[in-house]
Amino acid sequence: MAGVSDVPAPSPARRAFPPNWPLRIGLVALALYVFYASSILNITWARFVEGFGHGGRFLSRMFPPNFAADKLALLYSGMFESLQIAILATVFGILFSVPLGLAAARNLSFAPLAWFTRGLIALLRSFHPVILAILFVKAVGFGALAGVLALIVASMGFLSKLIAEAAEEISMKQMEAIRATGAPFLSVLVIAVAPQIMPRFIGFSAYQLDSNLRNSALVGLVGGGGIGATLFTAFQRFDYDFVLTIVLAIIFTVTVGEILSGWMRRLFQ
């Protein structure tokens, strides 16, 4: 009998789901921050309500989208220029990224070069394509060339980082085998390194083509040519029905581009 009374009764305070005080305090802090930030940014309910009125008028002016022949001609020329920008930026971006990425891989290059290249890649990556486009518009003037150059640099930042990471993960056995035959450095790269990083390389090249297609709509907003320039002009002229046509065309092109690059990835893997 005594043995039974020795077993401590479960404390009534223990609950299956105890209140999560850190979470509650965090949520209150978050709510306070939202009020504080809204007051700093001058966001008020009155502005929202006023905006929704504008929004209704805005939407009614956007519908139906404008498919007039002269607008479509503008749309096509802008879209083709965007495509050209995206294709050229991807091709040259890949060409420049390969040496940069390999130089940044710590197992293939030597330490000072690898660290220098890593710094350069970080620098390239930290600038938004729009900022690059502004700088290139100043350097080479308005138009598609500035857009292409801006997106080449943006692609280099992204691709060479991934190439460096892929190259650092390769198995060194193949490299040692090819080196042992006395092959020069370039042969080692082509025979031992390239086949190991190729599948991933094609994957992110396809992704970069998508991303450049999307960004080619962006560089035009600051003078880099392409569909973005057409879109910006339409906005400035309050041609909102044409704006909707352009946005639909961009969504369509980006979606088709994603499907095509998905095919490309499957074809090569």
Binding site: L41, G51, H54, G55, L221, F232, F235, I251
Partner: peptide, 19 residues
């Protein structure tokens, strides 16, 4: 649709600014 294009829309609706 890129954030900058969304911004163009919202600037037309709510006026320029952080909102």
């Amino acid at each position: 649709v890129h954030a900058m294009v969304w911004a163009l829309f919202f600037v037309a609706v709510f006026g320029p600014g952080a909102l």
